[in-house]
Design a protein around this nucleic acid. Sequence first.
DNA 1: GTAACTGTACCGTCCGGACGGTATGGAGTC
DNA 2: GACTCCATACCGTCCGGACGGTACAGTTAC
Lengths: 196, 196
Amino acid sequence: MMSMTAEAVENARVEGMSRPPTAREKILDAYAALLRSDGERAATMDATAALAGVSKGGLLYHFPSKDALAEAVIERLLDAAQQDSERMEAAPEGAARYYVRTSTVEETEFDSFYQAVVRLAAGAHAPAVAALDQVHGDWERLVREDVADPHAAEAIMLIGEGLYYHSTMPGTWSRSLVGSDIGALLEQVDRLKEGH
Amino acid sequence: MMSMTAEAVENARVEGMSRPPTAREKILDAYAALLRSDGERAATMDATAALAGVSKGGLLYHFPSKDALAEAVIERLLDAAQQDSERMEAAPEGAARYYVRTSTVEETEFDSFYQAVVRLAAGAHAPAVAALDQVHGDWERLVREDVADPHAAEAIMLIGEGLYYHSTMPGTWSRSLVGSDIGALLEQVDRLKEGH
DNA sequence: GTAACTGTACCGTCCGGACGGTATGGAGTC
DNA sequence: GACTCCATACCGTCCGGACGGTACAGTTAC
């Protein structure tokens, strides 16, 4: 069996080979989980290492600085967003419906990292803000291509962003809204899309 | 000339008398401004005191702990939200239009403190989350009263929350959306509200 | 034998908070 | 109306702990 450098492991992951979770993956997941649940402040290196079941030395072996951790999370998001955009563009239901439908909280890896990066952006982390800019820009472009009326497209974008807003916010009211019928919401999207 | 205790000064503020900005007000504004611009992490007591033009000791005189600062910001938000809800209920254009129209970034005191509390909530600050729950619950109730179709009401709520999402996010893409024509967006709201 | 860790010990900085001052300006007393 | 007393409204410094990061000597698994 070949030995693998950290980089080789990373490449293998990017190429889609599924592998048993390495320490590096566990650390990244733990960091994202802490960001989501308790915010940037609580996502310390010690806490991340503890949650990942790894020593601090082990964490620093993979990520030499906290910023490296943040960069890796952002990179993961951009990778996932790239794939999501392709699915969105090819969706038979149309980009607008796809966008709104997938904006609801599903326990996907994509959402997990999206929410993590939102928390980073809330701390004014410039690369996180830039990454969100890029992701939203892609979505907006695809929705605008799908929806003839630009004002309807804008309203649909906002609905999706409202759902993301809910997904990144803890609290009770989010459940009452997001938990409701997606089908009915998609009908509203259709109504906006079709014009009057 | 009457003497005023700190409590009397506070009461005067609550009762709506306009007074020259006291140190307490300046500290609160500074703290909210730091939360908005750079997030919870950067809104330290030292930074707040410096921005308010007050010594650290002076800050701690008015707010004995950092949590007291957060509580005061939340209280301010709830006060402002109370007044906003009353205006929303009485709005001739209807609650739905009022809600969406005022969800765009205006440089009001209300928005300033709303964004500050969102940043606190992003740090999993429980009272901040509860306050946002309450504010959003009021809005939702009023919009549901205004819009016959509950699914349309939900879509309208989400549009407003999408706008708030933009307002709390730095970055370039927010401008292209939020800066666009509010009138056109309100037309979309009308279309949702009227049903098909 | 090398990559992938563990575990510990340590450093400098920052942050929240405690604390001891100080200036001011009434209130009460005679 | 001078004197004491005291509350308000601050200032400036110090401390303990947490956090990011360094260093490095061992250990395990392939």
